[in-house]
Amino acid sequence: MTYLDLHSHSVASDDSRATVEQYLKWINVLRKRGFTVDGIVLTEHRQYDFDVDYSQLAEQYGVIVLKGAELDTCFGHMLVYNITPGLARDVDFGDVKMDGRELIKAARHHGGFVVPAHPGRFGIGLVEYMALGERFDDVSIVERVNGGSKPEENERADELCQRTGYLGTGGSDAHLASHIGRVVTEFKANIATSEQLVEALMSGQFRPVPIAETAAAPVS
């Protein structure tokens, strides 16, 4: 079992005010309070830095740190996991109007995986585009619980999953240290790398859980 926060932003994102080390310190605060968070995925806005290496920090604090991205598309924000140089070559991460459907295909082609973020969010979530008649045949998983969304927006994401059969992940969407881990995804698999994260997503063996529900979880 692995509990990962699949959506977080460090100071590399323009609107976040948390360093990666502050996130890792806070996860240890959460652990002292009895909660379980095994790791985080940093999903910086509109960018991916191949050079930055968090392995030393990860080891120091005993937290898995993976890297992804949250990209702006013409169909809302999309979380991208297991980003490869090939994907970064084919997709302009800074293009806020990129075709989201093409991004999903490109990520899959390069061994990555795309999960539409906060699909119930007003004005920008996938639900809005589906209501306009857009189809997303390549989507199978969405972010069902987003820690930064309004309750009614998460309800819309929940309804979307019930209606379509989409599977759902959970992520804090943290922009502050103390918000990390407030929503996580519980995976049946043990995950330590981005490749394993993609495999675990494709297995369908996961569910979103609020931090409170991790309190009784066995330590992994």
């Binding site: 005010r17 948390a18 502050q22 930064g148 969304s149 309004k150 309750p151 502050l176 240290a177 103390s178 918000h179």
Partner: peptide, 13 residues
């Protein structure tokens, strides 16, 4: 270092 939030009475957003 401290995090800051300002909300209404219901801290949803």
């Amino acid at each position: 270092q401290c995090d800051i939030t300002m909300t209404g009475p219901v801290p949803d957003r």
